[in-house]
Every structure is written in structure tokens, then in C-alpha cells.
Design a protein around this nucleic acid. Structure first.
Lengths: 233, 233
DNA sequence: CGGATTTGGTGTAAAAACAACAATAAGCCC
DNA sequence: GGGCTTATTGTTGTTTTTACACCAAATCCG
């Protein structure tokens, strides 16, 4: 223990809250710890930052090693630095959240090794370290962010239906099933922003009337932003 | 240099963007560096975090040592950790901003020693390290925050006029003098929130019609928040 | 003392945004 | 074809936002 203590005299790490959206629900990717402390407990994926590595790079690395994904949405949220947050020494951690299209997620050797698994937010139990607090803060940040920036699309496939988009918002914002958003008003609002383009294709393989597919038009959005527009739901 | 290098092998610091409001303008408190690197350059007040000190505590300490103030508004903003941000080694820094009533500010020995001085935002030149970037990010954060939380009052004296409050918003949000907020609409909006109470006193010593003084009623605000209200300007 | 100067304080009407609400359409399954 | 399931669409009343101009109260100065 004392060697470990000396190694951990003062270090910094990144932890990554990886959100995904599947089956109409917001999920978070957790790993099961294989070593002490908190062996066997679920935790946020994270790692120490290498001496010659930028913080963002470290967060990207953690994400890529676990999911195989690069270039996805990643945002720093806050740094957690309580003196006693790590039982083996002083470790402050910089928390990030990332948004991935869950269908792109592929199991990597690291995800096997760490028994990574998607958890519905509500079914997350007691996590290692202060990871419950970190998850909580990151979720709040996502909830704010999704309302004033078009980041929701990062969680959906390229082409999606308006119903899927609405379910995404209801799930992220944790709105009760019945007391959710009004379908007509939601469509009116999102379409009036002019950042969605209608694809030629329709939904396939469903046992009911197929819906139109839409895509987010980032170029047009960027142009609106340059003109002073601000996304708001 | 090499001893310094070994000391700075890996460390973390806090930097504090201290905002004040005076003469109708938003100001930031900077210090002039007395030692290398960047000797003589203006910089944000900051310090290394002690081994047994929480991050927030370190930020409070930096603030108190420089201004003599405790218990003022303080918020963590972001952590800056580019590998080369500090010329002598790896130092990541956690940026905070704080809001103080500039009239409460008293020069401490530390402020003399560090030649602390208030700078108007627009007249801030090139700062040490990556402090221009930090200042910029913190200012953006303040601009967002001031619109959806009642933090503006932290910059004003206990009792203030509605004109002062409006000037505060215009200054923080950097609105052009003439194309600012509409006086009537601003008053209507802020008063309709019911979080200001009219004092019995009036403004004194002005060479024109004196204005009513108001106070922010935090209790009432907290109660509204508990009921689901959200501040928004 | 009276007029000039300066800032404080107030209301209304038009436009836009928001909220509430339900009936028809299009495909699949049998 | 009939039943099932989800998709799609408009209107109306209410609230919120915006735009806009005049009188009031105090000091200053002649």
C-alpha cells in the first residue's frame, strides 16, 4: 500500500461520462472495476493523464480505448478535487461527458476486459469514488446543454424520425411519459428552426405507417449561428 | 532551472478571475508578476493547491489573501491543462471566477506586494501564461450565468437603483450604449420577478431626481426556486 | 425665484411565441 | 377489407415580448 501511496502522491485523471440513447432511453456506459480500490464496483471509465498528454487528449483516449470511437462529441464539465476523494492519495479528476451514437459502439478488448455495460440512468446504483456525484453533475450539464445547443443529434443515427428526436428529449430531460412534450408543438418548433432536412427515404421495417427520416444540417446551423441565431428548446 | 523543473514535474493550481463593477463598468482584478516566468506581466491571481487542500478552498484562499474578502460568490469554470501551458513544467490549473462588491475590496499586504489593480475588460492587454484564454472563457461563463441566475447582485452594493442594475447588465453583456436594453421593459421584467424589495430610502447626493433604492430578497428567490421558478433575463 | 438640465419613472398597442387541443392518413397484419 | 398502430397536420386563445414618448422630481445656475 505504501508504494501505491507514494505513486499517488499527487496525480490527475480524467473520467468520462459516456452517454448513449437506445430503446427510447438515455444510457450511460460504466465499467466494473477489476482492481482495488472499489474492486467489483461499477465506475466511470477514466485513467490517469500521461505527463505529456493534454487533458482533452486523455479523455479522447479513454473513450477510444473503450469504444473504438474517435471524433465524437466531448465536453469538459468540472474538476473534482476533494482531498479525500481517492482513498489512496491525492488525485483530482477532470470530468468529461461524451455523446455517442450507440449503434456505432463496438466492443473493444478493453471493453471486454473491463466488463463495460450500458446502464439506464435510473438503474445506476452506488458507484466507486465520487462517481455518483460526477454522473449527476454531468447529467445536469447535458440537460442544460441539450436545450440550448443542437447536441441531441449526437446521440441519434444520421437519419432519424421526429418521434425518435422527441423521445430523446423526453428521456434526457426525464419528463414523465404522459406529461411529456406536445407532439404537434414539438414538430412545429423544431422544424421552424430550419436545421433539419427531410430525407427522401422513409422508415423501414415497422409494423405501422412509416415515418419520414430527417437529418441535421450542420452547415446551415453554423451559418445561422454566425448570423446571431441561438438554438433553444 | 532544473531544480525548478523537478519541482514542477506535475502540479495543479487555481486561478481566479475576480470581477467587480464600478463606474458603470465591469472590471477584473489583475496582479503584476514579480517573479519569472512572465516577470512584470499582468496575470490572474492564483496559486498552487496545497497537498491537503480542496480546490474550492484554494480558490477561496487566493481570493482572501488578495482582497481580504470571504464568503463571496465563487464558481469553478474549467480546467486548463495543455501540456505546454506552463513554461517550467506540467501544471494544470483550475479556473474560478468570483464576483465581489468592489466597495468592499480592501487592499491587503498581498495586494500591495503584487501590485493588484482593477482593469476594464477592454483594456486588458497580453497576460501571462494562457490567462487571456482563461479570462475569456470566464467572461463568457459570467455572461451566460448572469442571464439565468441572480448573480448580478453580487457585484452591486446591498442597496442599488434599477438604473445601476440595468447598467450592470449592459456592461457585463457588453451591449452598445445606445442599442442597450429598453428601460421600461427592463424594469417591468425585473420587478415582475418579485425578488426585489423597495427600500424606504432614496438615492442621496446626486444632482438630479433621486432614484428609489432596491434590495435583492434572497429568501423569496430561494422559495420561488423551490417552487420550480427559474430566473431568466 | 425661475428656467435649464439631468435622470427617474411610467402605460399601451401590435407582434410573436406558446399552450392546448383531435381528427385523418398510411402502412402492416390478419 | 377491417382492425391495429403510429404519422401527420391547423386553429384558437393566452401569454410574452417588443417598440415607443412623455411627465416628474430634484439640482444648478443665473
Amino acid at each position: 500500500m505504501s508504494e501505491v501511496e507514494s505513486f499517488f502522491k499527487s496525480a490527475f485523471s480524467v473520467d468520462n461520462v459516456i452517454f448513449g440513447f437506445d430503446g427510447g432511453e438515455l444510457k450511460v456506459l460504466l465499467i466494473q472495476r477489476g482492481a482495488a480500490p472499489f474492486r467489483g464496483k461499477w465506475a466511470l471509465p477514466g485513467d490517469l493523464v500521461y505527463p505529456n498528454e493534454d487533458l482533452d487528449t486523455a479523455a479522447e483516449r479513454v473513450l477510444e480505448q473503450l469504444t473504438g470511437l474517435r471524433g465524437v462529441y466531448l465536453e469538459q464539465v468540472r474538476t473534482f478535487g476533494a482531498v479525500d476523494r481517492h482513498p489512496l492519495g491525492r488525485v483530482i479528476t477532470v470530468a468529461y461527458f461524451s455523446l455517442i451514437k450507440i449503434s456505432d459502439f463496438t466492443l473493444t478488448p478493453a471493453s471486454f476486459a473491463q466488463s463495460a455495460r450500458w446502464h439506464t440512468i435510473s438503474e445506476v446504483g452506488e458507484l466507486a469514488f465520487d462517481h455518483n456525484e460526477i454522473l449527476d453533475i454531468c447529467l445536469q450539464r447535458l440537460q442544460r446543454k441539450v436545450r440550448n445547443a443542437p447536441v441531441g443529434f449526437e446521440l441519434l443515427p444520421e437519419k432519424f424520425t421526429l418521434t425518435e428526436l422527441q423521445q430523446l428529449y423526453e428521456s434526457v430531460l426525464n419528463l414523465p411519459k404522459n406529461k411529456g412534450l406536445d407532439k404537434r408543438n414539438f414538430r412545429k418548433k423544431i422544424l421552424s428552426m430550419n436545421v433539419l432536412v427531410e430525407c427522401a427515404e422513409m422508415q423501414e421495417g415497422v409494423a405501422h405507417r412509416p415515418a419520414k427520416l430527417y437529418q441535421f444540417d450542420r452547415e446551415r446551423y453554423d451559418q445561422f449561428v454566425a448570423e446571431g441565431y441561438s438554438f433553444d428548446i
